[in-house]
Every structure is written in C-alpha cells, then in structure tokens.
Nucleic acid binder design. Structure first.
Length: 823
RNA sequence: GGGCAAGUGGUGGAAUGGCAUACACGAAGGACUUAAAAUCCUUUGGCCGUAAGGCUGUGAGGGUUCGACUCCCUCCUUGCCCACCA
C-alpha cells in the first residue's frame, strides 16, 4: 500500500476515534508520579481553527507527547475563552443569540483540534461562558471585595464609542481600542476596578525569578509596571503661598529649574488664574487644548504649545521666583501633573524654552564643553557630569548626587522621596451582555451589597435581545435587575455591568487542575500537585495583558491561602506569527490558508510536520504552498521504507561493520532529535536530523540489497517511528501497530535512550588548516598524539605544496577536530 | 527618545570560537513513460579554470584570536514593544 491521501484520511479518523474512546491522553491525578503541565493559551472560539492555532497547538502537542513518552504524568488540557464581544456582534449580524453562536463555534473548534490529532485531556475541557465556570469568577470577585481589592469609583475612564464600553488602560493601544481601533475618548463614569497596584512591587520583583521567560516579555512587563524613583518637590505659589508639588526623577537638576509647567487639566490652574488679568487668555488656551484628541496631542514632532499664567512659583532650594506656565506636553495622568522645567538638561524643556524665550542655566558640566554658559547650546545635555551652579552640591557627580539630594530635601522638608508607578488599577466593568455578571446588588438602604456566596452563580439571563445600541444590555431585563436586597430584604437592583473577559482568562489554568469541582474553585492538593504550569505557549500579543493579569491573580490566590507558589508559568514560549506574502494572515487581508483545506489535501500529519519544520517556533513563519510538498515527500518515504524494509518477527541477520554504523546513526538521531527539542524547542533542526537518518537508512537498504541485517534495521525503523510519533502521531501510531505492537498506544511507549558508547568512532576525521585555510582532511586514530599527527600530515603531497618554502611557526591541535598550521 | 530581537545562497533556514550554507523548497539536466504526473539519479553561493584546483564570500568598518556568522567597539538597515513618563 502506498502513501495515499485516501488511506491517510482513513487512518487519521480511525486514530482520532480510538484516542477519544480509550481516553489515551487523560491525565490521572496520581500525585506520586512526576508531573508535567503543558499548556497553550486557550482560544477565543470564533469559528474554525486558523493557522495561528495550528502552529501554537502543534508546538504544544509535540512537547506534551514527548513528555508523556518520557514517563511524566502529563496534563495537557484545552478550553475556550468564550465570553466576549465578537459573540455579541455575531449574534446581531446572524440574528442568533451569543450563547448559540459561541457553542457552535466551540464544537467547530473542538472538531478541528481532534482532526489535528492534539493530545488533549478532553475530560477537562472548559468554556468560560459556562455557569459552572463563571460562578468562580464571581466568587473571586467577592473575595477581592472582601479584601478591598475590588472597588467602585467614579473617574475619567477610557471609552470606546464604537464598542460602547469602557476599556482598561492595557486595552488602549496608541490611543485606539485594542479590538476595533476606534479612537478612545475619556468619559466620567462610576466603574469597578481591581486593585492590581496592591501587587506592583511583587509583580515587578518576581519578574526576576522568571528565568525561562523570553527576556523581551519580561522587559515589556517591567516597562508596563513602570517603577520610577524620584522626589516630589514642594514649590510654593508666590502670592497665595499654596504648595505646588512637582514630580521629578532628576532632582540633581533642581538648581537649574527656570520655570514650572502645569498640565492644562491641573486642578490648581482655574483656582490660581481666577480674577487675574490672564484669566480669559488662559481659559481659552485650555479650551483649545481640550479639543485636541490625545492621539494628536502626543503625535511625534508636534510643536509644544503653552502659555504663561502671569504667576510665579518659589523654588524651595534657592528661593528663586520662576514663572508658572501651562503646556500641552505635561500630562495630568503622570506624576503630579506639574513639572519643574530644566531646559539645559531635558530636551523637551529645551525645545519649549527656545520656542518661548525662557531662561536657561547649566547645572551639569559637559566634560567636552568646558564653557558653562548656556549660550550656543543646541540641545539639552543629558549625560553624566559634575554639578555646577548648585550651591553645596557643586562638584559632585550628578548620578551620585541623586540620593544625597533626595535625603537633603526630606531633611529640609522641601520634598519627599516617592516611588511612582505607571501601572494603574484595572478597570473591569463593561457595559456589555456576553460576560460574567458582576455579583453585586444596589440597595437604597444598604448601599453596595455583595451577593452572598450561597446565591452564586448570578446567572446571565437568556431573554435578552442584543441590539448593539448603547447601554448595558442587562439593564433591559426586568427579571434580572429587580431583586431583594440580600441584607435587608427590601427591593433593590442588580449591577448590570459584566466583567472584562480578561478576568476569565486570569485563572483558567488553575481550573484545569480540577475542572469540574462544583464545591470549590479547585482542590488545593490538586493545584499543588499540578501547578505551576511547566510550559506555557502562546502569542507575544499577550505579553502584557493576559500574562500580567494572570500573575496578579496568582499572587492574590496565594494570599488567600489557596496555593503555595508565586508565579503561574515557569517557562514561557512565545511562538511567531504565520505570514502569507509577507503579511500576517488575517481574514480582512484575505491572505488566509484554511487548515482544513490543507488537511484534506495532505492530511494533518503533513501539516503538523511542515509547520514545525518551516521555521524555529519563536520566529515568524512564512507560509509557502510549495514547500509543504517536502514534508509530504518525507513522510511518504518513511512510509514506503517501513512497508518494504520492516520484517515482522524476522530475525536473523548478520551484523557487520555497516550494522554498527547503522546503530551509530540511530543513536545520533535520538540524541540530536531529543536535544534540539529540549534545548529551546528547535523542531526544525530536530526534524532535519530525522531526514538525515532516513537518508542513511535508505542508503543502507540500497547498498545491502538482500543482505540487510534485519534485526538492526528493524530497531532503526522502530526508533524512527517512535521519534517521529510526537510530530506526526496518526501515521506513526498506525505504523507502530503494523509492526506488531498492538498492546498499547505508541504514546505510552518509553522514549528511546541514547547509548553514548554507540556514538563513539574509532577514527577521528581531522581537518587541517594552513593559516586558517582548509587544506586537507585526514582520518586518524582517536586521540592521536601530536607527533604522530605531524608525521601523517607532513607526508601529504598537498600539504607539502602549500608549505613549500615556509617556516612552521605554530602547530595548533584541537583534539579529534582540527589542526591549524601557522606558517 | 528608550528597550528588545534580527541581518547568512534564488527561498525557508543550519552551524558548544574550529570544514560557512546541514535539512528542505525552487531551478537545471538526466532515467522511467506514447505523454504527463508521481518517483528516482545528478548538479546548484560568486568569480577564474577543460580539469585538478585557486580566489572570494555570513549588512558595513575596525578590534581580540592560531582561527570569528559566533566575542568586543563603531555604524547602517529591518521588525516588535514602550513612549511628550518629567
């Protein structure tokens, strides 16, 4: 029988069914065995699987299968991040309801995963829109309320006018909505927040323990958390004596401050200019700025606009009276919304000062520019140097002075050292339908009342018509809204906002450890056994949002005493995108390749192999319709070699030198294949080692014709199938059975072991260079002594020619590898 | 502006400081075939040479080294993330 697509389809569906029926990949909660938790970021169920899923989940599947064969108790679960806005949009478009649409997508995806042969523990499959799951979202929320980590406050929030909902800071990308890219506006609303900032320090510190995360993800998180140490310096307003704190990380330049700038939104502005001659002018300016969108305001290269208030501030270090300006380059959201401007040592201040003719004073000496006059300065000097014009601090290195000046200011009570964080509390309420209802009741008498734990879940009502018009859809359900106050029993009404879906995905990895527990969120002992996740795999696009939130929840659960570890994901792999024609595959660009179409042409094994072979997992992968034929050809050759070369039961054969060589090739393949995966998931090179192995096997069979050493050849073919089975499981399971191993799945067969002795050669192939240039190759005995080497090498005609008329200055030997003659 | 990656044949890509281009795609030539597909064999960085062989070659330029794709310095280019963050 040849390798034929119709045959392959039969084999693939046969094993799909068998693995499912036999629960081949169910993880047992046998806590005495060493465990391995392999997890991929669960998908949003939007329909059929796409190439991005195929790549992400194939990578994970290879790891899970290999760990299983290596004897680990492997947990490899899957689920669906099923709440979210696309379901509502689809419901409107297709005139169905979000639940129906979502569950249909889930079953399509499930089918797609089975077709791909992924080794999931289907008993632990979860969907976050299932009330058995989101009940625990609500439970977590109540616990957070209890600890003061979930709270409601009124403030200006990010609002997407297109999605008609609030957004978290993390969901605003370049001033636009992360989902629909519409420009985000600010709106004053009463909203629910999670106090992620309670863990700022821990979230930052523990990043250092994540040694096996990509450094750029760690860097991105650090950046996002944004810790900066600085000083709030207390300026005073000249006439009123009011304190005006400014935040700076550059207190070393305090003696160079020549003006103060407030953000246009600064609350002091109105108060200070009221009744002054400048009042109208200032208010007009503020109005003008307020009409500019945030995106435009921060646009690159924009001229910095500002206006003098007519007022002065007093610098507490030297009692200088300096002008107070208002300018658009100072942001209310950061620091105190007010800065001291040091044009000589801050480029933004420099440009602004030049533009408006404001004074400058150098306080850090540029060693290359001995002149300390500010005249002729073309840009701010931001490097190190000695302090000048800085009273008692003159002569001190500016970097060293930072700490000293901060301490001095605290002593003099003219400033205080502060730590400023960029991280903000997480806004989680959404004015949408398809999400977890926030379990809170409003009572005129009792105020905000949490729903008692025994009344969970607060079930998402199904009688809601989704229109896409504004406002929380839940508010339209009378049945849902009207409720008795859990505290006093009087009529009250429910919260109608739902939770952001990132809430759901911040702890799902814990739920898999005990997926169907209806008594508690998960069993502590099980979580202790399975967690943390040994290997997490997903896209780089989640480097901040999802990973940060998951880390936050983990720290919270630890504080609750539910778990005993600090970080949820020990090792992280971020796989690259799948591109077509140089661009990310996407429906909107119309450059997608449908995995289903590829499967029906080549089968899932070929697709899996190709996607692993085409690029290292972290790199982008350019889809190439032609190159996949190479993967197909390789599998066809494996198939036919085994069909024709493997003899069951056989087993006489005459071992000879070529048997030994073959055994050596077998061990090279095991070693290289295994190591390439274990050291950085280099699937592409591990596959190439199997290709090399196959080439050798074919060559052996061709050369030996009827005289093959059948037992040795059989061993090689079995090894080939075992190794390959983690990548192309369908075909290998079938071949394994055909080889006569009917008692168990190939996935339960122990992983082949390397015998280092079999790898050793009797001879070493030595490369000889003359002055670094390759001039010859010699087979010499292993660990050949230098005098013997010289004898062999100098006897060679070619070497003689190249050395003719030259003195040998050095003779460098790298044992069993290379000789470099310097002449 | 800050941070992190990366730059190697026509293409995807490979090389613990030690034979640059493994493995594959594509291309060219050949075998099989009435023909095509499939399959198999050979060649395939550039230049010179009938050949043997030689020279050259990993973004650019320096450096360290017996020896550099690999380490160091300067620069260029591309991608990603963050960013008027004081």
């Amino acid at each position: 029988m040849s390798y034929d697509i119709n045959e392959i389809k039969k084999i693939e569906s046969k094993w799909q069914k068998a693995w499912k029926d036999n629960k081949t990949f169910s993880a047992t909660n046998d806590t005495s065995k060493p465990k391995y938790y392999c997890l991929e970021m669960f998908p949003y169920p939007s329909g059929k699987i796409h190439m991005g899923h195929v790549r992400n989940y194939t990578i994970a599947d290879v790891i899970a299968r290999m760990k299983k064969m290596q004897g680990f108790n492997v947990l490899h679960p899957i689920g669906y991040d099923a709440f979210g806005q696309p379901a509502e949009n689809a419901a409107i478009k297709h005139k169905t309801d979000p639940a129906k649409w979502t569950y249909r997508c889930i079953s399509e995806m499930h089918e797609g995963f089975e077709k791909m042969g992924f080794s999931y523990d289907w008993d632990r499959e979860i969907a976050t829109c299932d009330k058995a799951y989101y009940k625990w979202n609500q439970w977590i929320f109540l616990k957070m309320m209890e600890k003061g980590l979930a709270y409601k406050k009124a403030s200006a929030v990010n609002w997407c006018p297109s999605c008609e909902t609030t957004l978290a800071n993390e969901e605003v990308i370049n001033g636009g909505c992360w989902r629909c890219k519409s420009e985000v506006v600010q709106k004053d609303l009463d909203q629910w927040y999670l106090k992620i900032t309670h863990y700022s320090e821990k979230l930052l510190e523990d990043l250092d323990t994540l040694k096996e995360w990509p450094s750029r993800v760690v860097a991105m998180q650090k950046n996002w958390i944004g810790k900066s140490l600085g000083v709030e310096i207390f300026f005073k307003v000249e006439k009123t004596g009011e304190t005006l704190p400014v935040f700076t990380t550059r207190q070393d330049t305090i003696f160079g401050a020549t003006y103060v700038v407030l953000a246009p939104e600064h609350p002091l502005v109105a108060k200070l200019v009221k009744g002054t001659p400048k009042e109208k002018e200032v208010f007009d300016f503020i109005k003008k700025i307020s009409l500019v969108s945030k995106a435009d305001r921060v646009a690159e290269g924009l001229k910095k606009e500002g206006i003098f208030t007519g007022l002065y501030a007093i610098n507490p270090v030297n009692n200088e009276h300096i002008p107070i300006w208002i300018a658009d380059y100072v942001l209310m959201e950061y620091g105190t919304g007010a800065i001291m401007a040091v044009p000589t040592h801050d480029q933004r201040d420099f440009l602004f000062a030049k533009e408006h003719g404001l004074p400058m004073r150098i306080v850090i000496q540029d060693p290359k520019r001995p002149n300390i006059a500010s005249e002729g300065l073309t840009e701010a000097y931001t490097a190190e140097g000695a302090l000048v014009n800085s009273a008692r601090f003159n002569g001190m290195n500016n970097v060293e002075s930072l700490q000293k000046i901060a301490e001095w200011m605290e002593q003099e009570k003219i400033g205080k050292a502060v730590t400023h964080w960029r991280l903000r509390d997480w806004l989680i309420s959404r004015q949408r339908y398809w999400g977890t209802p926030i379990p809170v009741v409003y009572c005129d008498a009792c105020g905000i009342v949490p729903v008692p734990e025994k009344d969970l879940p607060v079930v998402l009502p199904e009688d809601i018509k989704i229109t896409g018009e504004g406002g929380s859809p839940l508010a339209k359900s009378e049945k849902f809204v009207h409720v008795k106050c859990p505290k006093c029993g009087k009529p009250a009404h429910r919260e109608t906002d739902t939770m952001a879906t990132f809430f759901d995905s911040s702890w799902y990895f814990l739920r898999y450890t005990d997926a169907h527990n209806d008594k508690e969120i998960f069993n502590k002992a099980l979580a202790k056994y399975w967690m943390p996740v040994d290997q997490y795999i997903g896209g780089i696009e989640h480097a901040i949002l999802h990973l940060l939130y998951s880390r936050f929840f983990t720290k919270f659960f630890k504080d609750l005493g539910l778990i005993n570890f600090d970080e949820p994901f020990t090792r992280l792999l971020t796989q690259g995108m799948v591109l077509k024609d140089g661009e990310v595959m996407s429906k909107s660009k119309g450059n997608t390749v449908d995995p289903d179409a590829v499967i029906s042409k080549y089968g899932a094994d070929t697709l899996r192999l190709f996607i692993l072979f085409a690029a290292p997992p972290e790199d982008q992968l350019e889809w190439n319709d032609g190159a996949i034929d190479g993967s197909w050809r390789f599998l066809a050759r494996v198939w036919s070699l085994i069909e024709n070369g493997y003899v069951k039961g056989a087993l006489s054969g005459a071992p000879d030198n070529s048997s030994k060589a073959l055994e050596r090739e077998r061990h090279i393949a095991i070693k290289k294949f295994t190591e390439d995966i274990e050291r950085g998931f280099k699937f592409n090179t591990s596959i190439s080692s199997l290709m090399v192995f196959l080439n050798k096997l074919e060559q052996y069979v061709k050369e030996k014709k009827d005289n093959v050493d059948q037992p040795t050849l059989n061993k090689s073919l079995e090894t080939l199938v075992l190794l390959l089975s983690v990548m192309t499981p369908f075909m290998c399971e079938e071949m394994w059975q055909k080889m006569g191993h009917k008692d168990k799945s190939i996935s339960d067969v122990p992983w082949p072991q390397v015998d280092e002795k079999a790898l050793q050669l009797e001879n070493a192939s030595i490369v000889v260079q003359i002055n670094g240039k390759l001039r010859g190759k010699f087979d010499v005995p292993l660990d050949c002594p230098e005098d013997k080497l010289r004898e062999i090498i100098f006897a060679d005609e070619k070497i003689k020619t190249h050395l003719a008329g030259k003195d040998i200055k050095r003779f460098i030997v790298v044992a069993n590898k290379i000789v470099n003659i310097v002449a």
